[in-house]
Amino acid sequence: MMFLDTLPRFLPARSNYLILSRCKHVQAARYKRSIKGNKPLTYEMAGPPHTIAHIKGWNSWNTCNMLDGLRPAETAIDDEFIRRFMTGTWHDLIASEIIIKRQHDIIRIAAITVQKISVTKVYFLIGYTEELLSYWLQCPIKLELQTVEDRTAVVFKYI
């Protein structure tokens, strides 16, 4: 960012100016302010992507992208499948990002859920998710959930 700011001073050429100013126009994973200022953001949402490894961590932990790591593409697709599956199966219950960690053939899925449904139903969903995902991904799955009273508990700031 700083580099892009100072760049125009060295390269005042007009033809490049538009590209450079467009370079500054990043909008990925940044939330726009609301008029009333009551849009809730979780901690994850509050940090823009350049703060990953600074104040944020990653959402998906695996060794596929190291040197000689195996099947990075398939892993990414599987992660996306898992996230959509979780969000769809747990109807409106997941209040945070879904963290996926792969550790020795076991996939550990962590999320924060809201205490909206009865406990027996939660256990049913836990058993069901673990089993079905293990059939799909062909490796054991462990779910690690944390429950929270309602969504206001995971709100970090209001924008």
Binding site: T120, Y123, G127, Y128, E130, T147
Partner: peptide, 24 residues
Amino acid sequence: YLIPVSNFQKRAYALSQESGRKAA
């Protein structure tokens, strides 16, 4: 929230988890 404190709850939670597995 998910820890049982009575006999009924213990049985109910364990069996409901297993019934989820059976459904899958």
